[in-house]
Computed example of a mutant assay.
Amino acid sequence: MEEKSVQAEVASYTGRLFRDNFGKGPSSVYVSIKHPFITIYLSEFLAPMEKVLIGQRNFMKIEENRDLLMKELLPEIKATLRVTADIHVENIYYDWSLSNRTGILVGVMKEDQEVKEHSEFPDYPHKLEIQDEIIKVSEQAEKVPELVDSLYLNSRTLIIERMGILVEIEKELIRSGFRESLRLSKRRLEKRMLDAKVIETILGTPVIDTFVDWDFDLDKSHIIIILKPKKS
């Protein structure tokens, strides 16, 4: 199947899945594929009941409910990507921007272990500056990551991958069963600390959305920055 056909198939499936399970689907779904990532960006995604909760400024409740539902949906999404698009996803990360009514799903495809251990993402303009800024934010929020790398999927999607960022108190909270509380708190903290104006200055283009999620078991995190494409 051609890439555009795969993207259209995944976008259509995702829209139906979210409509069936959340009561309202996103108005648009944008799919990007560049090994080892597939991203699914949702726009105008907010269920009727969630609008009420936002009016009450009960953002935490929305995220808690979405996390519970996503735990049920992730195995189905993985299986569907494998069967319909021949995309073998190892892990899926996700996050929401409730104020913008957007969301992101990031699938990490399975790789050969030797390739995984010896690969770096290609360079792009200002890559080191972006990664230095992420290191500064990580140091303030947790600690300096053991590894940082980043990849442009396309002109509007930048993914930054971090390894080894959890501090001991966070690891203890995870062992004590406070994963969800830690995840929600870290989302708010890091997105508050990520300065869009600094990113915009480095890359020379406006930031539309910023997302972040973690795999606590692997001590890995992904930051996704959605940019306004530059005019050609």
Rank of each mutant, 00 (worst) to 15 (best):
Met1His: 09
Glu2Ala: 07
Glu9Arg: 14
Thr14Asp: 08
Gly15Gln: 12
Arg16Gln: 14
Leu17His: 04
Arg19Ser: 10
Pro26Trp: 13
Tyr30Asp: 09
Phe37Thr: 02
Leu42Gln: 14
Ser43Glu: 12
Glu44Gln: 12
Val52Thr: 13
Ile54Thr: 14
Gly55Phe: 10
Arg57Ser: 11
Lys61Gly: 08
Ile62Asn: 09
Asp67Ala: 15
Leu68Phe: 06
Lys71Ala: 10
Glu72His: 14
Glu72Gln: 11
Pro75Ile: 02
Lys78Phe: 00
Ala79Arg: 12
Ala79Met: 09
Val83Tyr: 05
Asp86Phe: 01
Val89Cys: 05
Glu90Asn: 04
Ile92Lys: 02
Asp95Asn: 15
Trp96Leu: 13
Ser99Pro: 01
Arg101Thr: 07
Arg101Lys: 15
Val108Ala: 07
Met109His: 04
Glu111Arg: 14
Glu114His: 13
Lys116Trp: 11
Glu120Asp: 12
Phe121His: 09
Tyr124Asn: 10
His126Ala: 13
Lys127Glu: 04
Gln131Ser: 03
Gln140Asn: 02
Pro145Asp: 02
Gly164Ser: 04
Gly164Val: 02
Ile169Ala: 01
Leu173Ser: 01
Leu173Gly: 04
Ser176Gln: 14
Gly177Leu: 09
Gly177Glu: 05
Arg179Ser: 00
Arg183Gln: 06
Lys186Asn: 05
Arg188Trp: 00
Lys191Val: 05
Arg192Cys: 09
Met193Asn: 06
Lys197Trp: 06
Val198Pro: 03
Ile202Val: 11
Gly204Val: 06
Val207Lys: 10
Asp213Gln: 02
Asp213Trp: 02
Asp217Arg: 07
Leu218Ile: 12
Lys220Ala: 03
Lys220Ile: 06
Ser221Glu: 08
Ile223Thr: 08
Ile224Phe: 00
Ile226Ser: 03
Lys231Phe: 05
